[in-house]
Design a binder for these strands. Structure first.
Lengths: 233, 233
DNA sequence: CGACCATTTGATATGGATCAAGCGATGTGG
DNA sequence: CCACATCGCTTGATCCATATCAAATGGTCG
């Protein structure tokens, strides 16, 4: 990569420091100990746009944290259609799959930098450090939460799905009312279980009703958050 | 309850026995230490058909294990529709939600017996016993897996969803080729994001093509597993 | 037997898919 | 620097799977 931000290189993580600070059981906002461990132990890798990170069926042996860019996980169904599992943005951890083999493939949506760490290393840490173990659980629980939220999206109308997606992206992004989408219309369609045409039409319609603005096809300004939340039902 | 099978009552769980036996990282088939802990610590409670176990929005402070009967979790959407989150059968653990408050409600589908244990007790155990901590993670990961599988179902056709549901129930049940459904057509419809009419019509159609047999509306015989798997795409 | 509820079956409507074409931005070769 | 190919997106016309509305059937319990 050209502009490689130096990532703190691998090194032994101080472990067994016990429960240093109080945290409520269910604070999902951060999973810092694990995240720090990945920063310490992880190897920085760069992937080019559309480059494969791992493939459906391969053994699940690493954890990943996005540093820059964006990643999608996806699955090719028997009929050839593609279903996107999730989008991961900078700061997100992915690769936490339940089975021994990846149920989904992962690839870079745009040029991306990712930290990679072996699961076995994390599991060893977790056995010694309760904070890490709890983070591991939290991260999985958070992922579960996201998938459940999406499940609710998938039974709604096309407009509700698209609006729900936009609000989700806006919440995850930095800027409050502006979203820079790294993914194509096709990606969005495969994420929401719709066709590219329906996604496009919905965007146009939202523009017509002044709920959003589309300076470019990948940049979306949320004009009327309240109206959007109403449309998300 | 009338036929109350005696459940081993609460009692202190031996802890800190460390990693007694080897298990692969990803063995999701069992989570025995945690399951046993719930057996030891849990209070047996009985719920009647349609009785509320916990309600959407209430604090998430317990874990549950189904002893007999069946449980559904569900959510009432803004437009009044009901989405079912999951069905839990004997042996299943539920209540592992990510947030402080329940995103879903839970109720008994038929008369059910359930073990209830405080999450805080489990978390305390998990802090001392790595096996419990790992089980907690595994159980959450398994739940994640199930939800992801269902996500894939929800983007398919009505027939594929219904067949997928039947195969799932058959795998989880005891008898290989026969399923006794504890839930109504409406429950199934709300689980699959379909209408009750579509579910019913699909069942009739599967009967017509001799893929299944319907001795009663709640009892389903899988006549042709291979054909069903093909229909599930 | 009669009331009630779950399920099935029938007729019609519709949201989103599919098929098809046009448009705009980006990049390439002459 | 312009002509043109390519790719991602939008727009239009039609079709179809499933929802919706409506009614009949069947099973269960007092």
């Amino acid at each position: 990569m050209l502009t490689q931000t130096t990532i703190s290189p691998a090194g032994r993580m101080p472990i067994g420091h016990g429960a240093r600070h109080q945290r409520p059981d269910n604070d999902l906002s951060e999973a810092n100990d694990l995240s720090e461990a990945i920063e310490m132990l992880g190897d920085a890798k760069s992937y080019r746009r559309n480059e494969e990170i791992y493939f459906q069926g391969e053994p699940t042996d690493s954890l990943y944290k996005v540093i820059s860019g964006a990643v999608r996980t996806y699955k090719i169904l028997a009929d050839g259609r593609r279903q996107i599992g999730a989008f991961y943005l900078p700061g997100d951890v992915f690769g936490l799959e339940a089975r021994d083999d990846h149920a989904f493939s992962a690839e870079a949506i745009v040029d991306a930098k990712v930290l990679v760490v072996r699961r076995s290393e994390i599991f060893t840490l977790a056995d010694r450090d309760n904070d890490i173990a709890r983070d591991l659980w939290k991260l999985t629980a958070r992922e579960l939460q996201r998938v459940q939220d999406r499940l609710l999206l998938l039974v709604k109308t096309a407009q509700e799905r698209v609006v729900g997606f936009l609000l989700e992206m806006a919440e995850r992004g930095y800027a409050a009312n502006e979203v820079e989408l790294p993914m194509s219309r096709q990606d969005i369609a495969d994420y929401l279980g719709l066709t590219i045409e329906t996604v496009s039409r919905t965007f146009t319609q939202l523009t017509t009703t002044a709920a959003i603005e589309l300076p470019t096809s990948r940049r979306i300004v949320l004009r009327n958050r309240a109206a959007l939340r109403r449309l998300a039902s």
